[in-house]
């Protein structure tokens, strides 16, 4: 049962990674691409980490599982800081946000 749960979490994580990559390639400008990068990819990482932590809990103990989960807040903080820095810089350089109807 637990193996099924962790494998499903891995697959769901892969799905969100895939969606994030598709968004990065399809979205029209820097700002919208940041949405794809900051949200879908982080959720994918979260699911993958949760799935692996479940497996590690059974074989390697609690501390190993918590260590895997510890990566998530680090990645979240990093990605929040980076997306703000890039969005702010883009705005300062006068990159106009894409609007509906633009090419």
């Amino acid at each position: 049962m637990s193996e099924f749960t962790s494998n499903s979490l891995l697959v769901v994580g892969a799905f969100f990674y895939f969606a994030g990559t598709v968004g990065l390639l399809r979205f029209p400008d820097v700002y919208t691409r940041l949405h794809a990068l900051a949200k879908a990819d982080n959720l994918g990482l979260g699911c993958v980490l949760a799935g692996l932590a479940l497996q590690a809990l059974e074989t390697d103990g609690l501390a190993a599982a918590l260590k895997l989960l510890l990566i998530w807040p680090l990645a979240l903080a990093a990605s929040a800081a980076v997306s703000y820095a890039i969005a702010q810089r883009a705005a300062a350089l006068g990159v106009r946000p894409w609007q509906k109807g633009d090419e």
Partner: peptide, 8 residues
Amino acid sequence: GWQVARLA
């Protein structure tokens, strides 16, 4: 994440 995935 779900919202962005759906839109993408």
